[in-house]
Amino acid sequence: MIQVKDLTFAYTAAGEKVPVLKGISFTVQKGESCAILGPSGCGKTTLLYLLAGLLAPGEGTVLIGGEKVTRPSPRVALIFQDHALLPWKTAWENAVLPLRLKRQREREIRHRITPLFLRMGLAGLEKRYPHQLSGGQRQRVALTRALALGPEVLLMDEPFASLDALNREALQDFFWEIKREYNLTVVLVTHCIEEAVYMGEKLIILSPLPARIREIIPNPGAGERNYRFNQKFWDTCSQIRRILEEGRGFDEKQD
């Protein structure tokens, strides 16, 4: 479904090139959930922007469903870090924005989004502005907006970072339900080990800036009920922690 080949990217800041991604290659199968783990500032957001067609790669290609990504497509939805809901639009208007941009009629918009709004547990909050919603509610409005056009691929940028622990676990389970219901292929980036292990059937570990792939680990237990209480979950978390610690020494020697 998603094929990333030799992806390289650099930002130009003050006339100088800052390499952010170096030779990133991986694939994600249809219906698979892939978690990408890396320290803050290593280039995770940049990687998602490239997958979403918001940035053009320096070298390498991104194929989604066999097609080269050159610009945003309704088949691929992105949930931004901190949601990026528009503060001047109500929860409802934020959620229906993709359909408004497609110039859909009011009746169709209502017909399509009302059940989705209900499914997300947002009924009754239509007229609230983002600053009048809790973090979890904002996250679910962002999810509604992302699902409005019926995408096949869902990209998520640190989706649970701003939530407290209990809310986070409840919302992670909710995401698994939604992923199965809508048959989504998911790529999630995070700096949190437990979150990556809980959410990703495939784990990709990145090095610090500029990001290279350090290791790809299969994690078939993700998505099982009560995986958090399973020994395998904690073993995988420890395994990753070891990889990150070894890597730290490795990176220092390199520098």
Partner: peptide, 14 residues
């Protein structure tokens, strides 16, 4: 204006 707002709307096909 935060860059994310413009990117978010662009990613929806604006």
């Amino acid at each position: 204006i935060p860059r994310e707002y413009i990117l978010a709307v662009s990613s929806l096909g604006a």
